[in-house]
Amino acid sequence: MDAFYASVEQRDQPDLRGKPVIVGWPGERSVVCAASYEARKFGVHSAMPSSRARRLCPEAVFIPPTFEKYREVSHQVRGILERHTPLVEPLSLDEAYLDVTRELTGIPTATETAEAIRGEIRAETQLTASAGVAPNKFLAKIASDWKKPDGLFVIRPHQVEAFLIGLPVRKIPGVGKATEKILLDMGIPTVGDLHRYSEGELVTRFGKWGTRLWQLARGIDENPVQPSRKRKSWSSENTFQRDITLDEVADYIRGEAHSLWAALSERSLVGRTVTVKLRTREFSTATRRLTPDQPPSSGDDLSRIALDLLTRFDFAPESLYRLAGVGVSNFVDGEEEEPTLWKGTMNDER
């Protein structure tokens, strides 16, 4: 999300639009939580002491943060992301990694998915988001910053090397001031210069981190997108004695939705996302999921949503199914995160 907190405030208070807005307390000891792009033109950025921001941009409007509101918008955006893939790894309230290898709505490419998501976020939240599309998390993160605000940047596999070669080493996640200085002292200002060093040489200099550095310099990052561990789901699925038709699947889903609802209400769980899963006789598996504006409020409601999802599969009409399932996830209470001392992202001390 672009200048997330500041953009939310500008959205909700039209008179702030076009003006430099700083989210944060104006006090001596406080720091800037977020700055609108208008304020950034003056050199204001997040984590800067508020007093310094005030000097740089005296006309800026200071707004105290309302994290409840940002969290709410963040949930809304999360819902949009999860329409496209269950593999969403949030980094903070306004940033997330998505693995769209198996996109759920049938969009064929990652770039089109990114554009679709940006469009949905704009339409549904009146906020802008920037996206980076790349073969792995490390490159996607760099790419997402490349065309901010309201931009999209794509690094295709064959472009990785050319992209990395000219990149300053500081752009590598984990390279801070101290490591940057060591690298500069070694005559390594860019990622391309890093290529002159063998993995062994980097390990000797940087320890285990040397291996990671060597890999990142080559665009290698095998870390998978890890959906939040805290999220739980309840589901019921069944492999049938004989393969059944879509009509028979519908009967099964209707019944399962009601028993699932009973199990959930017994535990006072309210799930936002409903998922339906099908596997054909040919072992081709797909899921469809929906996060409606209002979480399902009854067994009938859940069943109606699940049956609607059932019509969204792309299998041939005469297909026979060996497995079907329905699930509920994204619980309203269950996903309560552990309370944190720092709101949003932790500000760098400097």
Partner: peptide, 13 residues
């Protein structure tokens, strides 16, 4: 081995 210091502003909390 030195690690880059990027500690959050702890006085703030």
């Amino acid at each position: 081995r030195m690690i880059d210091v990027n500690f959050p502003n702890y006085m703030e909390v």
